[in-house]
């Protein structure tokens, strides 16, 4: 059995990483909640964010963490035409039509990445991305802490947006009863479009963080998507704070799984957990009566 330093370091790192995972899943979650859409291109939006962060750094020389708002706006804007030209016309055509359309978007994006940026594996190389932080017996990557802080801040901001603003009211109302919301004057299409863009913007930021903490390439989207889905199911579809807690729980449990079974089992632990939650708590494991 590894010593206590390793165990605690692993768990701390897992929790911090979980926070970042939560951010990467946030967009998927709110889009699921509001539009009932499994956005199969979500992972590719994350990759767009990662490339955006990388090229922002290369062309401006400004640290991508400072450029995060720019990345967020860029990816968010990119999502607007996707919604209005591709998704909106399919409203009322059932879940498959929109889902398949987003899959098509996903393969188009992936192809575009290869053509534009080559298939190389990239990473946003910053010093802070590789510096360890040591607190007593615990050592964990500094980037995890930075990413965690940014993610949690952003998730709380989105939570505030959803729970305390007029837009958030419209969003929640549209999610549960679009027709009633519309008759009350809510422009449901606009709300959906902005939600979709918000989801993409969050994915953009998450992608930059992932790109700094790890590595990415044109086809990284698939793995991002599956991880995000696990977080979303754990936290409950469309539940912002649930997503944060789902992410942290997944990060921690994966770390424990990795520690006890080997790193290869981390994702397996995640997926098994995912199916178990689906089987026993289909609304997410912290869903209480938010009916």
């Amino acid at each position: 059995m590894p010593d206590i330093g390793i165990i605690s370091s692993t768990i701390v790192a897992g929790v911090l990483l979980g926070g970042i995972l939560a951010l990467t899943a946030l967009g998927l979650s709110i889009v699921l909640g509001v539009m009932r859409l499994v956005n199969l291109a979500h992972g590719d939006f994350l990759v767009v964010g990662a490339y955006a962060g990388l090229f922002f750094l290369q062309f401006t020389g400004i640290d991508p963490l400072i450029g995060l708002p720019v990345v967020a706006v860029f990816v968010g804007m990119l999502a607007l035409p996707v919604y209005s030209f591709l998704l909106a016309p399919l409203a009322g055509r059932g879940a498959e039509a929109q889902m398949m359309t987003m899959f098509a978007v996903s393969i188009i994006l992936e192809n575009a990445f290869v053509l534009a940026f080559s298939a190389d594996t990239r990473s946003i190389a910053r010093d802070y991305a590789t510096v360890p932080l040591t607190l007593g017996p615990i050592t964990f990557p500094l980037i995890y802490l930075i990413g965690f802080a940014i993610s949690v801040t952003l998730i709380l901001a989105v939570h505030w947006l959803v729970s305390a603003t007029a837009f958030g009211r419209d969003l929640r109302a549209s999610a549960v009863d679009a027709q009633a919301a519309a008759t009350l004057g809510v422009d449901v299409k606009r709300v959906q479009m902005l939600t979709f863009a918000l989801g993409a913007a969050c994915a953009g930021v998450g992608g930059t963080l992932m790109g700094a903490a790890f590595q990415f390439g044109p086809s990284s989207g698939g793995a991002y998507l599956l991880n995000s889905l696990a977080v979303v199911v754990l936290g409950g579809l469309g539940n912002v704070i649930g997503t944060l807690i789902g992410g942290i729980a997944l990060g921690a449990l994966q770390s424990i799984g990795g520690l006890t079974l080997g790193d290869g089992y981390r994702d397996l632990v995640g997926m098994a957990l995912f199916l178990l939650v689906l089987a026993f708590r289909p609304d997410g494991f912290l869903a209480k009566g938010r009916t």
Binding site: P2, G5, T10, G14, Q254, S255, G258, G262, D263, G264
Partner: peptide
């Protein structure tokens, strides 16, 4: 001697063990 799946992305436990 640690084996991991080919597309594993997390190596923290492996690294921690080697370090220790």
């Amino acid at each position: 001697n640690s084996e991991f799946p080919i597309d594993n992305s997390q190596f923290t436990s492996v690294i921690a063990e080697a370090k220790s």
